[in-house]
């Protein structure tokens, strides 16, 4: 749930990355900043970003992976299960 919304469309420019999208979301929903950013303004360790179902951190270029048209990003908290 993104500050009351389940999803939102993102318009990004050519060549922009997952990390760019992360900060774009924060521009659109500033209420998320205290939850997603640490005191240095970087993504918190516990915010996991998924690109089309894959943990972006596991991709070769990590959060710098370039986006393509129609890509889907998910922002998930740390999930530990029962």
């Amino acid at each position: 749930m993104l500050a009351g919304k389940n999803s939102l469309p993102l318009e990004m420019e050519n060549g922009q990355s997952v990390l760019d999208a992360f900060f774009r979301v924060l521009e659109m929903v500033p209420a998320l900043k205290p939850h997603w950013l640490d005191h240095e303004g970087q993504p918190h360790v516990f915010v996991h970003v998924f690109l089309n179902g894959d943990d972006a951190a596991t991709l070769p270029d990590g959060l710098n992976t370039k986006l393509n048209d129609g890509d889907c990003l998910d922002f998930i908290p740390p999930v530990a299960g029962g």
């Binding site: 205290p34 939850h35 516990f46 998910d74 908290p77 999930v79 299960g81």
Partner: peptide, 24 residues
């Protein structure tokens, strides 16, 4: 400091998992 930013256990409890498990 962080429960509200992470799983919000204090308001959602373990049912927060339903949406995430469904997603994956």
């Amino acid at each position: 400091d962080f429960d509200a930013s992470q799983n919000d256990m204090r308001h959602l409890g373990t049912p927060y998992l339903v949406e995430i498990m469904n997603k994956f």
